[in-house]
Design a protein around this nucleic acid. Sequence first.
DNA 1: TGGGCGATTCGCT
DNA 2: GCGAATCGCCCAC
Length: 191
Amino acid sequence: MALPPIIRRRFFDRSVHDVAPDLIGATLMVGGAGGIIVELEAYHHTDPASHSYGGPTERNAIMFGPPGFAYVYRSYGIHWCLNFVCEAEGSASAVLIRAIEPLAGIAAMRRRRGVPDLRALCSGPGKLCEAMGVTHKHNGLALDRPPFELRARAGEPEIVVGPRIGISKAVDKPWRYGLKGSKFLSKPFKA
DNA sequence: TGGGCGATTCGCT
DNA sequence: GCGAATCGCCCAC
């Protein structure tokens, strides 16, 4: 693997709207399992749909810390969702990882998910956390240290953009990014 | 201190 | 396409 690891500060200490599309095509591994990021969403602290909108709380405290760390929260009382904190310390912006194309540790991910279908392993924010074993224990961990491994993409992929999914506020903002033509998206992008 | 609600997923229709 | 599962967060009372 000749691709360079993503340097935490340099890569994440930028606008969440720049980091998000630049992460499409990057390789994310957790404990040796993972693959290529094909879908994510940006959440800015001035955005009513963001957990950080309204100020710091115990749950979202990590979002108000330095960039380059994982923010993991429970969704619907059942699933875990993984975010990368971006911008400057205190800016409370993050990207939600929504889908991954499985590449490594597939047997382990199938076992954790309990489904054989490759396309169903990581095609959703809750699914990919279950597949890679991400839980609240990963909240606050640095993204450039084990068990996380994050590597820059090679080349410039074609990126598609659309409105975010599953939110009730700021539903019109086109802050969902995807790898064009990927078979591993959580939902297709409208053409 | 209690109740409504959610950045979801899955199974059934 | 619809609704249940399920529980921590968060704010109103």
